[in-house]
Simulated scan of single mutants.
Amino acid sequence: MAISKKHFALLLLLLAAYSTHLFAQANSKPITIGVTEGYYSKILNETRTINIYLPEGYNQTDTLKYPVIYIPDGGVDEDFIHLTGIIRFDTQSWVNRFPQSIVVGIKNINRRKDFTFPVANLDFLEKTGFKKEMFPAYGGSTNYIAFLQKELQPYIEKKYKASTNRTIIGESMAGLLLTEIALNHPTLFNTYIIVSPSLWWGDEALLHQPNALLQNKTHKPVNIYIGAPNRKEDEQMYQEAQGLYNMLKVDNRIRLFFDYLPDESHATALHQAVYNAFKMIYGK
């Protein structure tokens, strides 16, 4: 049966579309931003997913070593990708805000357990709007900090071209964790980027207890950025962030930055805060 001109033209269009599809498939490849590893922690007694970004031009045989930026909320579906984008931008040669860096994101399993310190009871939650049943497990920060110090940092610095110049970024519960580390284990990191920290945990205990950072008169200089979103959303959280700043500003070995973000909420503050933090700490 003869094919009409109309059907022939349609057939040619279909063949052209199919050929284009095959060409696109043959010439496509995935976009890669890093690698994912499983790391078994003896301290935590579990395997943690670690996401790692290596700078452009990274070569394992080079003598150059890179600063490392750690993200406790570092899953691919958490903060790893968008924060790595900021870091990649800021380390481009035409921006050159700070040196090219390795990024280590730690995917969460139970952040409310890992990022909180032990407390006698959860009665303080009544004032925060949280319910006790939302914290079936809590108080695991001691183990988590030991995991960072004794396992993950040595592993990264042995396997990769990593220096001991370390930054850590965290918001909300992770901001609480960072505050605990900065106050009680200040030498673990050189720079702390603390955003909208949940300092209400333990009835604001971190703001009132003695700490190693201020008591140790010989600690090395550290950078601490504190970002606070719109105070109208949560006045208590703003006041706590301001209280942390006021507590730390008495020590001139701390390069301290307080950043009020009135256009951001607790949910949106992190991305803008991290961009601001790098700009404030390093300039251009």
Rank of each mutant, 00 (worst) to 15 (best):
P154A: 10
V222C: 00
P229W: 01
T142H: 08
Y192V: 02
P221W: 01
G243E: 06
E171Q: 09
P118G: 13
Q149R: 15
L248F: 03
Q242T: 04
A174M: 05
R231Q: 14
V195C: 12
K161F: 03
W201T: 03
P197Q: 00
L214Y: 04
H185N: 15
E126Q: 14
E235T: 14
D123R: 12
K161W: 02
E157A: 08
W201L: 03
D251R: 08
Y192T: 03
E126D: 14
A174G: 07
Q242W: 05
I145L: 06
H208I: 08
S172E: 10
M173P: 10
A162N: 11
F117N: 10
R111D: 13
E240Y: 14
L188R: 04
L152H: 02
I168C: 02
V119E: 08
D114V: 12
K249F: 05
A162Q: 12
F147E: 02
L148C: 09
L206W: 07
N223A: 00
Q215R: 09
S196R: 02
Y225N: 03
F135P: 04
K161Q: 12
F124R: 00
E151Q: 13
I109M: 11
K232Y: 10
I194R: 01
T191R: 15
L244N: 04
L207G: 01
K113D: 15
K132W: 07
W201K: 03
G139W: 00
P136W: 05
I224F: 05
N184D: 15
N216P: 05
T179A: 13
T142N: 09
A212C: 11
E235I: 15
F147M: 03
R231P: 05
G202P: 12
Y155T: 00
L206Y: 09
T218G: 11
L248D: 01
F189C: 05
I168M: 03
D123S: 15
T187G: 07
N108S: 09
E240Q: 15
P118E: 13
I168N: 01
I226Y: 04
I169L: 12
A228L: 02
N108P: 03
K127G: 07
I226L: 12
D123Q: 13
P210E: 05
A182L: 11
D234A: 02
P229N: 02
G243C: 08
R166K: 14
Y138K: 06
Q242P: 00
N143G: 13
S198G: 07
S198V: 04
Y225T: 03
I181H: 10
L207M: 00
Q215P: 01
Y138H: 13
P197E: 00
K232Q: 15
Q236Y: 11
T218W: 13
P221T: 06
I226H: 05
V250W: 02
K249D: 10
G175V: 06
E204A: 07
T128M: 12
K158S: 12
Y138M: 05
Q239L: 14
Y225V: 02
N110C: 13
M247E: 14
